Simulated scan of single mutants.
Amino acid sequence: MLTELEALGWGTDFERDYQAYLGALTPEEQALVQPVRVTGTGRQSVQVRGAQGEEEVQLAGALRQAQVTPAIGDWAVRQDTGAGPGRLVHVLPRRTTFSRAVGADDGRRAQAARQQIIAANVDVVLIVTTPDADFDAERLTRYVQAVEVSGARPVLVLNKADLHADVTWYLEQLRAVGPDLELHAVSAAAGAGLEGLRALLTGGVTLALIGSSGVGKSTLTNALLEGDVALTGAVRSTDGQGRHTTTTRTLYRVPGGGLLIDNPGLRDIAVWDSASVHFDDLEELATQCRFRKCTHTTEPGCAVQAAVRAGEIPTSRLAAFQAQARKRR
């Protein structure tokens, strides 16, 4: 049986980093601290959960001065203050970081933007879309790229699949976005097709949802949590878009195992540091192609395509690389 910390996602890597942190403390100081996971964030305080349950703690002045901002899903160190709320004094190194670049527009390099960490230590990210006017394969490709850069595993979800009698075209488009990605067609409102998603939520696994407003992320969250936890909103009939019903990111415990993060609806996403630095491996492979101006599609002797066929590079990553190359032309 998992311990409380293991059920929250604690692992050997976090234990190692925590022990290294303890090594710099006196025995008296060690007795005052414990590891906790960030389950909610606010301007002045942070919601955490650890072996002793859930509580609201204050951010230590040293962290504020160092401009360290805990993100949902972070593992951190809580210090007992003796009276009043505890204090968050340290953030452990992150296993994965899902970020976006704020202020990066077309034609601007990501270095001109600032990083916004959306969630940390996420294992699986559900990229949710719907078979309606909001469906955008290019945006979904950017979502996939962002998730892969984070270190998490992307999973494509076509929600509201019951809106159409035949969703074959949408499923084909999603397979083109990521032929090697797991794909699920579900109806969260009707509770249909959710078995495959629930299978992802094993003990200690952290799952997050991203997607545009109105695709039913909060409804899907409620379905997976088996209760009305996240607020849901109606979709406007004029344009098929919904109001943002999740205003904060919250980490939930899932019945039966696993954890789930509900994020605010993202209208679009610019991947943090999405300049060619993230494609160094592909740029290096491209120098081995037979043709200097290889587009890495159907040309013979393409080293990049060879790596894809060998399973060394995800096809979704190649698609993002090709999309970036097209923008440069």
Rank of each mutant, 00 (worst) to 15 (best):
T3N: 09
L5W: 02
A7V: 08
G9I: 05
W10A: 03
T12K: 14
F14C: 11
E15G: 04
E15C: 07
R16Q: 14
Q34R: 13
R37M: 05
V38M: 06
V38T: 08
T39P: 12
V46W: 00
V46E: 01
G53I: 05
A60M: 03
G61Q: 15
Q65S: 12
R78Y: 01
G82H: 03
A83Y: 10
P85H: 07
P85A: 12
V91P: 08
R95C: 02
R95Y: 00
R100W: 04
A101I: 06
V102Y: 06
G103D: 13
D105R: 13
D105C: 04
R108T: 12
A110I: 08
Q111G: 08
A112C: 03
A112S: 14
Q116C: 05
I118L: 14
I118H: 02
A119T: 02
V125K: 01
T129V: 15
A133P: 15
E138S: 13
R142K: 14
Y143S: 09
Q145D: 12
Q145A: 12
A146W: 02
V147G: 05
G151D: 10
A152E: 15
R153V: 09
D166L: 04
V167A: 03
T168Y: 00
E172R: 13
V177D: 01
G178V: 10
P179G: 11
D180G: 12
L181R: 01
L183I: 13
R198V: 06
A199T: 09
L201Q: 07
L201H: 10
G204R: 03
L209N: 01
L209Q: 06
S213P: 13
S213Y: 06
V215Y: 12
G216A: 07
S218C: 05
L220V: 15
A223M: 05
G227W: 07
V229F: 14
L231E: 10
T232Y: 06
R236T: 11
S237A: 11
G240V: 12
H244Y: 01
T247H: 10
T248D: 05
R249I: 03
V254I: 09
I261Q: 04
D262M: 04
D262E: 12
N263P: 00
L266G: 04
D268P: 03
I269Y: 05
A270S: 13
A270F: 02
F279Q: 06
F279M: 08
D281I: 00
A286Q: 10
Q288P: 01
C289N: 07
R292A: 14
K293H: 15
H296V: 00
T298D: 14
E299S: 09
A303E: 10
A303S: 13
V308F: 00
A310D: 12
G311R: 11
L318D: 13
F321M: 04
Q324H: 14
K327N: 12
